[in-house]
């Protein structure tokens, strides 16, 4: 929406509301409206999110809107939320661009009776009712490690691969991996870990060099997204498919061929469509007076966990069997 359209809406909406109140017969029941506020418009990720929300809207028979600023700026999100308060939206679900700067407008919305939730990104200091997210960074690392451990028969040398040495979320993945691998006495971690700066070429050549340094490496646990396909390519060029297993976190579109050939065993990911679909459903249920439950089994998603206002859905495992279901 461009600026003039927005101004026009801002003028017209109140005028229409007044006009309707004056002459229209009383509406039977106002249609429930849930508005999702994205970080920014135009990303493949947001498009996939929208699909999930759309599906939930159809199933629930409520109105679901998707609003996104043209730039990933919190100021533009605040303007959108102000507008939604004026429109007396039932619920706002937001992925804030700034966890702190969004706090006042969330308070304003809650005070005005609009229920506010966060999803995808949280604002922990705000009054939001709860936060819905995919499994956290440490848990994803644990899942990758557990899957790889199972794949290699719980024994042998494993190389952990990451991107930037200082990337906070990657370090959390690595932390999760270390925690999980510690459960398997048969597994030793090769030191030092590989840090490839998220560079495809370095990811590939460092994996090859690692296998020269330690020819008995049987598995790679990849914490950053360029690594799984790049290590898969390395394994392919060394004719070690099957002898060395690779698990990681990467986009299915970048890894499909290596999953198909067996060079990469699997990926741990969350499906943004499912995350948003579930968020719309659970927010709608809350508006009906139903609180989320810890440990509840949700069809097509698995067991969710709920504590301290944070609702987590488990990640999905992507292998050669189901990779074609994912189009991102």
């Amino acid at each position: 929406m461009n600026r003039s359209a927005r101004i026009l809406t801002a003028i017209l909406v109140p005028v229409l509301v007044i006009a309707l109140c004056g002459c229209a017969p009383e509406k039977k029941a106002k249609e429930r409206r849930i508005a999702f506020v994205f970080k920014v418009d135009g990303l493949l990720y947001s498009e996939v999110c929208k699909r999930g929300a759309m599906q939930a809207a159809k199933e629930l028979g409520v109105r679901v809107d998707y609003l996104a600023p043209d730039k990933a700026e919190v100021g533009k999100q605040i303007a959108i939320v102000e507008q939604l308060i004026a429109e007396k939206t039932d619920a706002i679900v937001i992925s804030p661009n700034d966890a702190d700067a969004i706090v006042p407008v969330i308070r304003k919305a809650m005070d005005a009776g609009v229920k506010v939730f966060t999803w995808d990104s949280d604002a922990p200091a705000s009054q939001r009712i709860f936060y819905v997210a995919a499994a956290d960074d440490v848990k994803i690392g644990e899942d990758i490690a557990d899957a790889l451990a199972k794949d290699i028969g719980e024994k042998g040398k494993v190389q952990i691969v990451s991107g930037g040495r200082g990337a906070a979320n990657l370090n959390l993945h690595v932390q999760g991996m270390e925690k999980a691998f510690a459960k398997y006495p048969g597994i030793t971690l090769v030191q030092p870990y590989i840090y490839n700066d998220d560079d495809n070429q370095k990811a590939r050549t460092m994996a090859i060099a690692a296998l020269q340094k330690d020819p008995d490496i049987v598995g790679f646990a990849c914490a950053n997204s360029p690594s799984a396909p790049a290590v898969g390519e390395a394994i392919t060029s060394l004719n070690k498919i099957g002898a060395v297993k690779v698990w990681g976190l990467a986009l299915p579109s970048e890894t499909r061929q290596y999953l198909k050939s067996g060079a990469v065993s699997g990926l741990m990911l969350w499906d943004p469509a499912k995350l948003t679909y579930y968020t719309a459903k659970v927010v709608n249920a809350y508006l009906d007076g139903k609180q989320p439950e810890d440990g509840e089994q949700v069809e097509g998603i698995g067991a969710v966990s709920f504590s301290n206002g944070v609702l987590l859905i488990p990640g999905v495992t992507i292998t050669k069997e189901n990779v074609d279901e994912f189009d991102f």
Partner: peptide, 11 residues
């Protein structure tokens, strides 16, 4: 060599 051309090559 990488079997992949992508915008972030050689960054």
């Amino acid at each position: 060599a990488n079997g992949n051309a992508q915008w972030n090559l050689a960054d």
